[in-house]
Design a protein around this nucleic acid. Structure first.
Lengths: 140, 140
DNA sequence: GTAATCTTGACTATTTTAGTCGGGTATATA
DNA sequence: TATATACCCGACTAAAATAGTCAAGATTAC
């Protein structure tokens, strides 16, 4: 049970960006160097982030990306959503047909998975990108 | 972000067993039929459960498996542990060498992953196998 | 006009996962 | 004591997911 690297890198990259004022675009090249993430891979990730309006792009020299909204309003779950990180523990819904259709006695565990999903999702719903930066600063 | 089938099947199978008195061994064949899980796969799963003292086996005709302890004391996390289900969201620990060694500014997200792990783990620590059966019964 | 930077789809190697196979061993019961 | 039922266990494999690269652009600052 783990997150995929796309999601993780996305959060890392955005946290990296969040340390700056938000006025000047940050280039992927810089993020790539600071966070040791492949530039080509970052491009793929930011494509998704842009499509989901999490970042805005500025083309050309001195271009880069800017975080669209206030970092204290940007939920971690929004980032995951953009990258298709399904926080789904896979209940019986997916494999229906043969079994669990609600009333079946097969799915004793049905509710467990539902609860877990809820539990994890609420964690990410309540965490904001801003929290990550704040925490770090107050600690150093 | 999802659980693997081994863990899920293990919980399903044990929940299935938990409905019985706990005196008579339950055969994998029966579980296989009731839960629509491949018998061969179940064998593999129960091998691990047995090694981790979650179930005891009874060989021969009319044999099967018995849950070792009281179902109200059996944590879901114990089951996952037996099947190597790592509830690890992969922080920077694994990929150290080049980056985050605690003091590095690279790992703004370090704490996020740690918190998440804690959050998920505590969920499973507090859930007992008995809870699953109770819930279902009270609902029907 | 050229260097820096974003844009995009397609491709690929590697790893993980899910599940099977085959050949055992133990024991209840007829 | 024969036999059917069940556990035991390592090795294997097909399929899917993942991580990451490649190639070929399009914009814009200077």
């Amino acid at each position: 049970m783990k997150l995929n690297t796309k999601s993780r890198y996305a959060v890392m990259a955005l946290a990296d960006m969040a340390r700056f004022d938000g006025k000047n675009p940050v280039s992927l090249r810089d993020i790539s160097l600071r966070q040791s993430i492949s530039l080509l891979y970052l491009e793929q990730i930011f494509l998704r982030l842009k499509k989901n309006n999490i970042v805005k792009s500025v083309r050309g020299t001195n271009g880069g990306y800017i975080i669209s909204k206030n970092i204290n309003d940007l939920k971690i779950s929004d980032i995951f959503y953009a990258l298709d990180e399904k926080v789904k523990t896979v209940g019986c819904k997916k494999e229906l047909k043969r079994g669990c259709n609600g009333k079946s006695s097969k799915c004793l565990t049905h509710n467990l998975w539902d609860e877990l999903d809820l539990h994890i999702n609420s964690f990410f719903e309540n965490k904001k990108l801003g929290d990550l930066v704040k925490r770090k600063e107050s600690r150093n």
